[in-house]
């Protein structure tokens, strides 16, 4: 059997051309359906938040306090539904509709933490709670400090 002289066949497609082929063969996200579902589910979640705000106001809280308390309640609901294994089922069809509300923030905290409990309570749960919450707090707080500085300099 010979070993050196065989021709070496290669696919006659360049990576650039392959990128076009890939785009052609890859199914596109169903944007319209996704947008409609995100609107409906996101709207429903915010409406529930509004009902809770109204409830707290009727219990005698001031509007701002009621809003804060409602946010905390929604975080509780999001965390609970994640623990019960329901929130990921909502997320499958709702997309951003269940990611953007604060319940989605709670989901992003609980989902990695409960999954890494087997790695221990400190380096598992404790560290993984902040997988997504960490970046959110870092950029949120940093932006607020920059805003505060700018406000100080301008006033």
């Amino acid at each position: 059997m010979d070993d050196q002289s065989s021709p070496k066949p290669a696919i006659p497609v360049t990576p650039e051309k392959y990128q076009k082929l890939t785009e052609q063969y890859t199914p596109k996200p169903t944007v319209i359906k996704n947008v409609v579902l995100a609107f409906i589910v996101g709207g429903i979640i915010c409406s529930i938040g509004q009902i809770i705000i109204n409830l707290f106001i009727s219990l005698g809280l001031a509007r701002l306090e009621a809003s804060t308390a409602a946010t905390a309640t929604m975080i509780f609901i999001g965390a609970l539904l994640t623990g019960l294994g329901i929130y990921d089922e909502i997320g499958k069809f709702a997309g951003a509709g269940s990611i953007v509300p604060v319940t989605g923030f709670a989901n992003s905290i609980v989902s990695p933490a409960m999954e890494f409990r087997r790695e221990g309570y400190v380096m598992g749960v404790g560290a993984k709670l902040f997988t997504v919450a960490g970046p959110v707090l870092v950029y949120g707080i940093a932006t607020s400090i920059v805003v505060g500085f700018a406000y100080y300099l301008l006033h």
Partner: peptide, 17 residues
């Protein structure tokens, strides 16, 4: 899933591909 992608309980949409 949790090594390569996201936690299983995270409510996100998987790409069609």
């Amino acid at each position: 899933e949790r090594q390569f992608r996201l936690p299983t309980e995270q409510g996100s949409q998987r790409a069609l591909s």
